[in-house]
């Protein structure tokens, strides 16, 4: 289930408010490997179903990879397709790799001089949505509307992980900037029936009471996708118990308050990750 807030967030991130059902993901063919010089293939897309490319690709140039030592790794056999991008990665070093989208590149830019703004205010006890520009913000006197807030995108982090050999932590280190997950459980050490613990961070501080949605893949074969809606606790920690083995999509949303054009804003941050959960 998606709230209106998420709908608006998706509108900001993707440039249109009609895309709320679309989910962005990077999906590895395998996440746990052994041996040397192993290959993994990936697909990356924005789709209606997990994990079936059926809408738009993620631009192949948006993909970036860091190896177990933290240094960039070049993707191979990259193809930017019509509904999905694909690429392969050779795991020449043992340890954990992070595959992510470069920040910002997927967002459809609005005109810098006249950006589209999204906001909300209260009217007769209900939340009214507003959409406009910096000019109409002033001309319509939005600042005086009760409870008026602009929605602002703080950015989105989209990532997945693969490990050859022993899981390592270098690519999991948090930077203290933007939205991040501190992996109290390693993202390539997830097993059915076990609870994984992730701490959501915003600018390095625990993001308490933040929304976390977990969806198992193959939702095309179910009447209901069966999203599991969770919230982080006071310490920013969410505990995820995987009901069955499979590939999962996780989205976490956190917000901060700020100001823009002289009005209050709610700045939204999104963290999206794809995980594989193995049977015990």
């Amino acid at each position: 289930m998606k709230s209106n807030r998420l709908l608006l967030l998706a509108g900001l991130v993707l440039g249109t408010s009609a895309l709320h059902a679309h989910r962005v993901w990077i999906l590895p063919s395998m996440t746990v490997l052994s041996g040397t010089d192993q290959w993994v293939s990936f697909e990356a897309a924005v789709s209606n179903n997990l994990f079936f490319p059926n809408h738009r690709p993620v631009p192949i140039e948006a993909i970036e990879v860091r190896g177990p030592d933290g240094a960039p790794v070049t993707v191979q056999n990259a193809v930017g397709g019509q509904v999905r991008s694909s690429f392969e990665l050779q795991l020449k070093t043992q340890g954990t790799y992070a595959i992510s989208l470069k920040p910002g590149i997927v967002r459809r830019p609005t005109s810098p001089g006249d950006p589209t703004l999204f906001g909300s205010y209260e009217k007769d006890g209900k939340i009214e949505r507003w959409r406009g520009t910096p000019k109409s913000l002033v001309s319509e006197g939005m600042a005086k509307k009760p409870g008026f807030k602009l929605r602002e995108s703080g950015g989105r982090h989209v990532v997945t992980f693969v490990t050859c050999g022993k899981p390592s932590d270098t690519v999991l280190k948090v930077s203290g900037k933007g939205i991040e997950i501190e992996y109290l459980t390693h993202p390539n050490d997830l097993f059915v029936g076990e609870a994984a613990r992730f701490r959501l961070l915003l600018d390095g501080k625990p993001a308490a009471n933040a929304e976390v949605t977990v969806v198992r893949g193959d939702d095309r074969y179910r009447d209901e996708a069966g999203d599991v809606n969770l919230r982080t606790d006071k310490a920013g920690i969410v505990q995820v118990k995987w009901p069955q083995a499979g590939r999962y999509w996780l989205e976490a949303n956190a917000t901060t308050a700020g100001t823009l054009y002289g009005v209050p804003t709610e700045k939204s941050y999104t963290y999206i990750a794809t995980f594989e959960v193995l049977p015990d």
């Binding site: 746990v32 490997l33 052994s34 041996g35 040397t36 010089d37 192993q38 050999g165 022993k166 899981p167 050490d189 097993f191 193995l278 049977p279 015990d280």
Partner: peptide, 22 residues
């Protein structure tokens, strides 16, 4: 050849996790 056999050790999932990968 090329230690290819080792690439399937991860299929011994429980052992790989508990010990093999170390």
């Amino acid at each position: 050849k090329n230690d290819e056999g080792e690439s399937w050790l991860k299929d011994l999932r429980q052992w790989w996790r508990k010990s093999g990968r170390d």
